[in-house]
């Protein structure tokens, strides 16, 4: 599974990094960044999906299953 961030949409709610820190982090301004280039570690798929769904700005997406 792979996820993607639309950086233009992110305003830094940081729900993604709170829910799935193995996949999402934050830069120095608090905007979302991909920790492992978007690859979701095995076992973290549900958290990654919840993180994508939890973005109020809809800045995140599942790029590949």
């Amino acid at each position: 599974m792979k996820v993607a961030i639309d950086r233009d949409m992110c305003v830094g709610h940081a729900q993604c990094s709170a829910i799935c820190p193995s996949v999402f982090g934050n830069d120095e301004f608090g905007y979302a960044v991909l920790v492992t280039g978007g690859e979701v570690p095995e076992g973290d798929e549900a958290d990654a999906r919840l993180a994508v769904e939890s973005c109020p700005e809809r800045a995140l997406s599942v790029a590949a299953e």
Partner: peptide, 20 residues
């Protein structure tokens, strides 16, 4: 339940800076 999409701290470029 998480319900992370709530917008208690606003939405868009004016999102509350102090939310965290």
């Amino acid at each position: 339940r998480r319900d992370g999409r709530h917008i208690a701290f606003g939405i868009g470029p004016h999102r509350c800076i102090g939310s965290h």
